[in-house]
Design a protein around this nucleic acid. Structure first.
Lengths: 193, 193
DNA sequence: ATATAATCGGGGCGCTCGTTCCGTTTTGGA
DNA sequence: TCCAAAACGGAACGAGCGCCCCGATTATAT
């Protein structure tokens, strides 16, 4: 459907690739708020060139986020297959780490000026599905309390990423992550009343 | 020093109060990004009037944040005095709740476009001091693991507020809060290696 | 080599928003 | 009541940024 009707000209293809690569790095460093002109400048092209390949700034951002998600999903599948009980923790840790590096992904995930589910429905669905899967796996393995669902995990990820951003220093972040982990592993707190 | 050299004219005093009140509500609803014009409109005054009382938008925002912090500190002192072991948890819960209601405070706290320590050094110092105090109190009471410090708690607050904002629904937030609490109460995880 | 079409670059438009300016209105003391 | 000082409001300015336009440039088929 949306396949290329004609191959891009050589210079056009080169520029497109450069823009993608630079945008990837720049969104990660500066967040979604970075001006298109800055990305164009870093890529050594004019703003017009960026807009010829991506009709809006948002569409460029979407492309980047989709790629990031793809990577995370892939790595998570591997890790979950290797160790079912640890899969969810490996996932959380990875997402927290990404939150430190990739400001853009953090914002997309937290829904700051960007509706992930609306913009990339399939990617979002796959992502959420994977999360539910590895959560159930971990719960079956007994490493995570059973009264939590995928939405709770998603919420925790948003929190973890915010914390990472706040406390850039990875060493100190490792002080808080164990707390979350202990909380997830804790037995359900049967109501006290 | 900065005391009023002359009492404000009646209309000026009235307008100043209105602006403060409206800004309080508007920053809470919309976050620090809301235009001054919007605050002026809601207060029924011109933008110029806002600027006569507060030289910059930031100074207005500061005034609001300082007031919010004052309230939180006061309530926390009461709660901590009433139940030393629960003081920290009451504080966390309160901060998480504020995060749901007060977008401006959340942003100020997470350091999004606003450096709390630089803008309001005394308030920040008092706040951090109080946190250290009730943390130590809880640790003495044995309700919080002993390998955490005030900076860790601050980090957790940022996370909690981000989660609240993401998951507005207070009922569902109550699904995640217990996880954090369990993690805080868990015994220290002596290194396994 | 040349023509033609694809692509490029960056100046410019339109909009938002913080802040200022100034002609007009209101206040309060004499 | 009257007037000078204080305060008002909203038009206007400047900066930042998304996006578009168009004359200049470059790739490719012949």
């Amino acid at each position: 459907m949306t396949e290329k009707s004609r191959p891009l000209r050589a210079d056009a293809a080169r520029n497109r690739a450069r823009v993608l690569q630079v945008a990837y790095e720049t969104f990660a460093e500066e967040g979604a708020g970075v001006p298109i002109d800055e990305i164009a400048r870093r890529a050594g092209v004019g703003a017009g060139t960026v807009y010829r390949h991506f009709p809006t700034k948002e569409s460029l951002f979407q492309a980047i986020v989709a790629e990031r998600l793809r990577q995370v999903v892939e790595r998570t599948r591997e890790q979950a297959a290797a160790d079912p009980g640890e899969g969810l923790y490996a996932f959380l840790f990875q997402m927290a780490e990404q939150g430190a590096t990739d400001l853009g992904l953090t914002e997309a995930f937290a829904g700051i000026g960007f509706d992930l589910a609306a913009a990339l429905p399939e990617a979002e669905k796959e992502f959420t599905g994977l999360m539910a899967e590895i959560l159930a796996q971990a719960q079956r393995a007994g490493t995570v309390r059973s009264d939590l669902d995928a939405a709770d995990i998603k919420t925790l990820i948003v929190g973890l990423q915010a914390m990472r951003r706040f406390r850039g220093d990875s060493e100190l972040m490792r002080r808080v992550y164990p707390v979350i982990r202990a909380g997830l592993a804790a037995p359900e707190h049967r109501s006290v009343d």
